[in-house]
């Protein structure tokens, strides 16, 4: 492996996890971020499912884009085609998992339909195209973006579990204080922006 490739791997993965964290810097996938972060366990499950779906989605959309859309000058159909391909593929994997690996289906299965057409997943596919990543780079970017989502959700779930034990003013209880916390977390993550100078 040449030095340049290694540099690129580091750049893509750390960039997606920390500097351009999908949830906290790009504000994609806020819905599952707020919805499934009440308990640490479900946050981990959701995180794993997101990594899985994002990686798969990156690969299939990259293939669709290179072999179907670009040769026919149909780049303007990307959003539509990507949603179709991702949804179909995740549905297929869900069926496959249910039959072949039931334990995995039990832990991830309930989250899969939730994120199939999530904006974060579509965002990964479109950003892959925008950044002109090839197949393996797309897969890496997808997995890293998922890992970034998982990191953010787990940190947030940890804080929210702690918040439950605190004496929060009545009108800030629940979602309001959670949103304020998310804002602080987001500010903290912007601090990573300067890492690569």
């Amino acid at each position: 492996m040449s030095g340049d490739t290694f540099k690129l791997i580091i750049y893509i993965s750390f960039g997606a996890i920390l500097m351009n964290n999908f949830v906290l810097t790009n504000f994609l996938g806020i819905c599952p971020f707020l919805g499934v972060s009440k308990k640490l366990n479900s946050a981990v499950g959701m995180g794993l499912a997101v990594i899985f779906v994002m990686t798969i989605a990156s690969v299939v959309t990259n293939l669709t884009n290179t072999y179907l859309l670009i040769p026919n000058n149909l780049e303007y159909l990307q959003t539509l085609a990507f949603i179709l391909v991702i949804a179909g593929f995740v549905q297929f994997i869900e069926m496959f998992m249910k039959k072949v690996i039931p334990p995995l289906y039990k832990s991830l299965g309930i989250y899969l339909p939730l994120i199939t057409t999530n904006c974060a997943v579509l965002g990964v596919a479109l950003l892959n195209v925008q950044n002109e990543y090839n197949l393996w780079q797309s897969a890496l970017y997808g997995a890293s973006a998922g890992a970034g989502f998982m990191l953010a959700t787990i940190i947030f779930a940890g804080i929210r579990e702690g918040l439950d034990l605190n004496d929060v003013p009545k009108y800030f209880k629940g979602l309001p204080i959670a949103l304020i916390t998310a804002a602080f977390l987001s500010m903290a993550f912007t601090g990573f922006k300067g890492i690569f100078g």
Partner: peptide, 23 residues
């Protein structure tokens, strides 16, 4: 474009139906 998008849709429709039976 109609053919390609329709084709993708049709492909996944058929594939998912078959997968539904197999799995």
């Amino acid at each position: 474009p109609i053919a390609i998008l329709g084709g993708i849709g049709l492909f996944f429709g058929i594939a998912l139906t078959i997968a539904g039976r197999v799995f």
